[in-house]
Structure formats: C-alpha cells, structure tokens
C-alpha cells in the first residue's frame, strides 16, 4: 500500500519492478492469459488425440471406398438410453449389429463402436486460445520493446503535476481500488470510471504533446533572443513527460482490458498506441532527436526507438483482426 501512495503522489517509485506499475500489470496479465491459453491448447490437443483413431479409420475408409456408419435417430438414441431398445452385446462386452441374410437367417455380426463427442471444450475458451496463440510471438516481441521504452520513460516521470496527470493517477487509483472490491457491479463501475479517466488523460496529454511538437517544428523558440536553447529544453521536458504518462496510460488500459478478458479491446488499445506514435512521433522523430539533449540520433536513441514501437503492435492487431484463425497440429512419427 505504501508503494501506491508513492505512485499517487507522482514520485518515481523506488522499485523498478513494482508489481503495480502499468507495465508490470500488463505483463503479469499477459503471462496469466498465456498460461490459461496453454492449458486450453493442451485440452484441445488431448481431445483431438482421442479422435485420431477415428480419423485414421476415415483414412482407411477412403482406401476401401466406403465406411458404414450407423445413423441412429434422436428417438432411437433415447430408447437405447432408457433401455427400450437393446443392442446385442457380445460376451467380451463389444456392441454388435447382427446381419440378416436374404433367406431370413441370421448372419455375421458387425461391430458397433460407441464414439463420444469431445466434451469439455468451451468454444469461447478455444477462440481465445487460438487468438492468444496467434499473438504469442508478437506479444513476446513487443514485451521486449515496451521494456526498453519503459526504461527511458521512468526517468522523466518525476515531480510533474497538472490536471492531465491528475486524471491519470485518478484512473490508476480507481483501478487499484476496484481490485479489492467484492461487489461485482461496483467493481465494474470502478473499472469503467478508471478507463474513462485514463482515456481522457491520454487524449489531453496527446494534444499537449502535439502542440509542443508544433511549437518546435514552427521554430517559435527563435523569437526569444538569446534564450532559444532554454525554450527548446523546456518544451522537450514537457514532451518527454507527456510521452511518459501517455505510455503508462496505454499500458495500464491494455492491462485492464487483458485482466478483464477483453483481448480484442486490449488489441484496440495497442493499435491506438501505435496509431498515436505513427501520427505524432514517426514524422517528427528527426526533429525531436535533434532537440533532445539526451538523444544521439541513432536507431538506439530515445526517439528513433520510440518510433519503431509502432510496427509490432500493428502486426498484433492484424493477427487478431483476422477472420479465420487456424491451428496447425503436427503429428510426430512414433519412434
């Protein structure tokens, strides 16, 4: 709780691995979802493996030309269940249907195999699992990028207080509070309000950052004779701080959606983040890196690395937005 107070006061948390940092919240939520996905995929796999013998029979049937299937109606199945109709059961317990010859005498026996439809597969769980598996590689890639960007962001999130940042902390506090609320409707309301606060804060900070960039791009700092560098530095401080809070904001919103199981909304937030970077930073990365005293202008530099974040998140969005998702199962040859 002490850590929360530090965060709410707007100071830099002492511990970089603070579990209540937006980045950590997102990564934890993603790891939990990934574990759930792996369990779901294991379940799907085991059910499919159970079905493999019948799939092999289908393969054999294509060689023979046909396969006989007993097509029992719903009523007949009910009668079998209730015991009105009985299938012949051999001494070894196998169910058979007996063939009657043309002369009326009983002939050979056809084995009937009871096949149970796969149980325990939740379609929603399956869809989520497929979605998560499709995103896995991209999520791993952006996790590394977010980690890198987060390091540069943490250094500037100090001592800044204004309405926009206040909204961010309000959203953060509401979300933390919602985690300890037992009443579901109250929890949902708090989460909704947290998301609203975060969204408002994010757009206001975005607009502020945009106006600061326009100021630099228009060269308005030149008007102050002999103080241009001071003006550039103060604007760059403002831009860096806005970006820091915007980054935290998007991470927190993505974490909230991920925790609530809303993966497509999480992808929308990540896509929104990539769109923001595309619109605000991508075209101005050269200018920003030249104005930032901490940037070296290379691809490893602050602004060029931030610019690059866009690519991988948009790739994730494409994966999720795909209409048809397919899992390819590979059968290993027996030794």
């Amino acid at each position: 709780m002490e850590d929360n107070i530090i965060v709410l006061q707007g100071n830099k948390p002492e511990n970089q691995e603070n579990p209540e940092q937006p980045k950590e919240l997102l990564f934890t939520a993603l790891r939990v979802k990934m574990q759930q996905t792996e369990h779901a995929v294991e379940k799907i796999y085991s059910e499919i493996v159970k079905m493999v013998p019948s799939l092999m029979q289908i393969k054999e049937a294509t060689k023979k030309g046909y396969r006989l299937v007993v097509d029992a109606s719903e009523r007949l199945l009910n009668d079998i269940e209730t015991g009105k109709v009985k299938l012949s059961v051999e001494k070894d317990g196998k169910i058979v249907a007996q063939i009657r010859e043309a002369n009326g005498q009983y002939g050979g026996k056809l084995p009937i195999k009871k096949e149970v439809y796969a149980k325990g597969l939740d379609p929603v769980q399956m869809a989520n699992a497929i979605q998560m598996m499709a995103m896995k590689e991209q999520l791993d890639a952006i996790e590394a990028q977010i980690q890198f960007i987060d390091q540069s962001v943490q250094d500037v999130l100090q001592g800044q207080q204004n309405d926009r940042i206040g909204l961010y902390y309000s959203g953060f506090a509401l979300y933390l509070e919602s985690q300890s609320v037992n009443d579901k409707s109250l929890k949902n309301t708090l989460v909704g309000q947290a998301l609203r606060s975060l969204s408002e804060s994010s757009y206001q900070l975005g607009l502020k950052m945009q106006s600061d960039i326009e100021y630099l791009a228009a060269g308005e700092y030149k008007k102050a004779k002999g103080k241009s560098v001071n003006l550039i530095d103060s604007r760059m401080d403002s831009i860096n701080q806005s970006f820091g809070y915007i980054h935290q904001n998007f991470m927190l919103r993505a974490a909230i959606y991920c925790n609530e199981g809303e993966l497509s909304s999480m992808s929308v937030v990540l896509n929104e983040y990539s769109r923001f970077i595309n619109q605000t930073i991508k075209n101005n990365a050269d200018l920003l890196s030249q104005c930032d005293k901490n940037d070296d202008g290379t691809d490893r530099g602050v602004w060029h690395s931030r610019k690059k974040l866009q690519l991988d998140t948009s790739e994730i969005y494409k994966k999720i937005a795909e209409q048809n998702k397919v899992i390819y199962l590979d059968f290993a040859k027996e030794a």
Partner: peptide
C-alpha cells in the same frame, strides 16, 4: 554527424543539429 554534439544527423541536414545551431546563435547574440 553534428559538429557540436556528434549526434547522428539525417541525410541532407545541416552541419549542426537544431539544438547546437540555436546554442551557437544564442552565444553570438549574447
């Protein structure tokens, strides 16, 4: 690279980065 701070400059840029250029102008004015 920038002659002042040695940062990488985009192709076609001037000899100094924006910040160093303004710093130079400021010094001259001062």
């Amino acid at each position: 690279v920038c002659k002042g701070c040695y940062m990488k400059l985009p192709n076609g840029a001037k000899t100094l980065c924006v910040r160093c250029e303004e710093e130079k102008k400021d010094k001259r004015k001062l």
